[in-house]
Design a protein around this nucleic acid. Structure first.
Ligand SMILES: [Zn+2]
Ligand SMILES: [Zn+2]
Ligand SMILES: [Zn+2]
Ligand SMILES: [Zn+2]
Lengths: 132, 132
DNA sequence: TAACGTTTGTTATAATATAACATTTTGAAG
DNA sequence: CTTCAAAATGTTATATTATAACAAACGTTA
């Protein structure tokens, strides 16, 4: 809440749109939506997105090139993301699972590489699509 | 081995290039590399990539828009992928960890969604870059 | 107010991916 | 062998996603 004050004008506008959407938004769809507010160029959008990601306010759904607000108040700032994606209706949900995130945070491979961050995307059939 | 016979000419050419590379290749870099072999258009590359992914011969590293040969002979055909990515040197390695894949295969969320596939990407510092 | 880092604005261009359509190859069934 | 359908190919054009390069304005804070 204190942090939202530190957001710049463009960052606020774009976070607002992403938070109000009920699905991940693509950069150019965001651009289209904010043109009435004076943001005219892709770079203005991408720059705000980059900052918002750094702050953990939003995440990028990599396999979709789309951006979604973080609904997971206790997720580590831009460090650990997990999504479920329905391949039929395209619905994307951020997974909030303590055990899963603990497991992945503690995961280490044989080589001794240091993991600072991860992104996990599950694909499948959501409950709605499963029924039909 | 039997399956490689079923690959078409373009598919073989492109799989060959990806297998010989020691890093994930981008689609247009593949295109550049195969132009001497008569493959001239992006679509020819993308179509082969799509098929090779379906067959589990290669994977896409989503956050890098790059394609890498599957080194993991027992990984399920295009259904379960895990990579480690060094943010310094950009080295990408496919993770082959029975426990991890078992854990993720059995993971289910609270909603009851059916997971058919997942992709996990870890980011960090590889052992080489850690030292320097 | 001076100086620094961050943000903005703007134009152009790079990089990634797909649409649409015509043709050819392949492999199995009859 | 012929026929037929599915898969693969070839080609042109275009859509989508993302960054380069540069100049100006803003917001701290010393
Ligand atoms: Zn989150
Ligand atoms: Zn669905
Ligand atoms: Zn694999
Ligand atoms: Zn490294």
């Amino acid at each position: 809440m204190a942090q939202i004050q530190t957001l710049s004008k463009n960052q606020k506008i774009i976070l607002d749109i992403i938070e109000k959407a009920n699905e991940p938004l693509k950069a150019y769809s965001i651009l289209f939506n904010v043109q009435k507010k004076g943001i005219k160029a892709p770079l203005q959008v991408y720059r705000a997105l980059e900052k918002l990601i750094k702050l953990g306010k939003i995440h990028k759904v990599e396999s979709r090139n789309a951006f979604v607000a973080c609904k997971n108040s206790n997720c580590e700032i831009s460090k650990a993301t997990a999504f479920s994606i329905c391949e039929t209706c395209k619905k994307v949900t951020e997974i909030s699972d303590q055990k899963l995130s603990k497991y992945l945070k503690n995961f280490h491979d044989k080589t001794g590489m240091i993991y600072k961050k991860y992104n996990l995307e599950f694909y499948g059939l959501c409950t709605t699509c499963k029924r039909s």
